[in-house]
Nucleic acid binder design. Structure first.
Length: 468
RNA sequence: GACCCUAUGGUCUAGCGGUUAGGACACCUCCCUUUCACGGAGGUAGCCCGGGUUCGAUUCCCGGUAGGGUCGCCA
């Protein structure tokens, strides 16, 4: 099958061999504004960006907005936001502020109509395309072809039975294959790094480049990202949109790190790597050729690793933002108290979306009680007496620190002849409504004596919980 | 259906003609502990199947199977 018969090799291959190694790398990410940034698209963007940064080349953003119905400023903004969130800066293309960078624009396909029609006209003039039923069809070469792919190797296609390709619809609109090739040609793209779903389309693209008498770019088809069950990840699937990670409290560096690990590996058994190191090590030939399933568990773990590495200041800033996003407005609340509480719950948190949940008991006196815990801890023999004893011990403390609280409760356990746990659990439930949480004694210290005693009193007031 | 790509524990991967097949996530056990986590120490689990080539295949070749992709006047 894999003949190396020169007669079967596209002339395009010769151009590759003639390219200079010093040629400046130009890669592009060409999303269509669908209203979300797909995780697979984000990975494609990431790999293009990595390659550009690794080779000192340019990363171009081109918006494939030929489908007018989906072409809204909001949809384009979602692409901008997603790329910027991931830290993937582009050297050419439309910028979020409305300006444009780069000399090879316009970078919106919707503004490039004249260019496409000029190329179609050329094909028509040279007899390489013809009109049929109002559409324009490109005469595809009926010869075998080998696609030289930087990741997949030499991939051969028959092409002898390929039908001619519509390049301009009856309604006058040029099709994807045509515009994609023309844009890559006009923008001087040197490496097309895209999903493997385009591998089978590449012979058509090569034919178009040849018809234009142009040098085709190098191709690198990267494996696809599949769902956990191995099916194709579509827009509708859970976790398919970058937006979900942005609002879910994931750290962008963590998502980016995880995405790097899908199809690429540093080969030294490390999982957590600064992006600079990935850039330094990244290259196309070492990319895996098989598809990968998206593993939310692992992303969660990676996120936890990054979470731990956050500086105190960054953590507080991030956490406050998450609380605000969650509707926890802190006006009127002592900012120092909030910061202390945030620092205390940090150890409980692996992902941003947990911040509001763990913070809730600190922020409201009307906190709900965990019913199962109430039944288990408070509706038991002697619970009321123990809780009252705790209140009394805490009320009489000369000073209020985690250490003094701990000493008091342990001393009480000793005098009552019960395990410390028999006091800790009711106390935790009494001041937070929760069976779990951060270190109890530190929580008491942060909450302060006044708040703690008031909460214990309110808990004690629920007489229906305590057998009399 | 045709064509193309792929195939290491459940998942992501390293490796590779001769290895006790390495790491990570997840899972299980134990330790730590006021809870849940974290952390620490262990553990279960893998080279898709069948033929070749070879002294020797997880590794190379062929076939099968499975998964994915492409076959639009979608992008």
């Amino acid at each position: 099958m894999a003949q190396v018969n020169s007669a079967l090799v596209c002339p395009e291959r010769l151009w590759h061999q003639g390219r200079l190694m010093s040629e400046a790398v130009r890669v592009r990410f060409a999303p269509s504004p669908t209203g979300l940034l797909h995780i697979g698209g984000a990975r494609t963007a990431l790999f293009n960006w990595l390659y550009a940064r690794a080779k000192g080349g340019s990363f171009i953003l081109r918006i494939e907005d030929t489908d007018a119905a989906r072409n809204t400023p909001e949809a384009v903004a979602i692409i901008f936001d997603g790329l910027r969130w991931l830290g993937l800066d582009w050297d050419e293309g439309p910028m979020p502020d409305g300006s444009t960078r780069g000399e090879r624009g316009p970078y919106f396909q919707s503004q490039r109509g004249e260019i496409y029609h000029r190329y179609i006209g050329r094909l028509l003039e040279e007899g390489k395309a013809y009109e049929e039923d109002g559409a324009v069809k490109f005469r595809t070469p009926k010869t075998p072809c080998t696609v030289p792919d930087l990741i997949c190797g030499e991939v051969s296609f028959d092409r002898t039975m390929d039908p001619d390709l519509v390049i301009r619809r009856k309604n006058g609109a040029p099709v994807f294959h045509l515009v994609n090739v023309v844009d890559d040609l006009e923008m001087g793209v040197t490496h097309v790094i895209r999903g493997e779903d385009h591998l089978s389309n590449t012979p058509k693209h090569l034919a178009l480049f040849e018809a234009f008498g142009a040098t085709p770019p190098h191709y690198a088809h990267i494996p696809l990202i599949l769902n956990a069950n191995g099916s194709k990840m579509s827009k509708r699937d859970e976790g398919a949109s970058i937006g979900e990670y942005m609002t879910g409290g994931y750290l962008p560096s963590a998502v980016r790190n995880y995405l790097c690990l899908l199809g690429w590996s540093p080969k030294d058994n490390r999982e957590i790597l600064p992006i600079e190191e990935v850039v330094a090590k990244f290259d196309l030939p070492q990319i895996k050729r098989s598809n990968a399933r998206f593993d939310l568990n692992k992303l969660f773990w990676v996120n936890g690793e990054y979470w731990k590495g956050l500086s105190d200041g960054d953590y507080l800033t991030f956490a406050r933002q998450l609380m605000a996003d969650h509707g926890q407005h802190l006006t009127g609340t002592d900012p120092e108290y909030v910061d202390k509480a945030l620092r205390l719950i940090r150890e409980k948190i692996k992902i941003g979306r947990d911040v509001p949940e763990w913070m809730a008991p600190f922020l409201t006196e009307a906190f709900p009680y965990d019913e199962a815990a109430v039944t288990k801890v408070l509706k038991t023999q002697g619970a009321r007496e123990r809780l009252e004893a705790i209140r009394q011990a805490l009320a009489g403390l000369p000073d209020w620190t985690a250490e003094s609280c701990e000493r008091a409760i342990q001393a009480l356990a000793g005098s009552l002849g019960v395990k410390t746990a028999a006091l800790v659990h009711p106390c935790r439930l009494g001041v937070s409504g929760q069976p779990v949480g951060p270190s109890l004694y530190h929580m008491l210290e942060v909450m302060g004596r006044e708040r703690v005693l008031a909460r214990l009193d309110r808990t004690l007031a629920h007489t229906e919980w305590f057998g009399t």
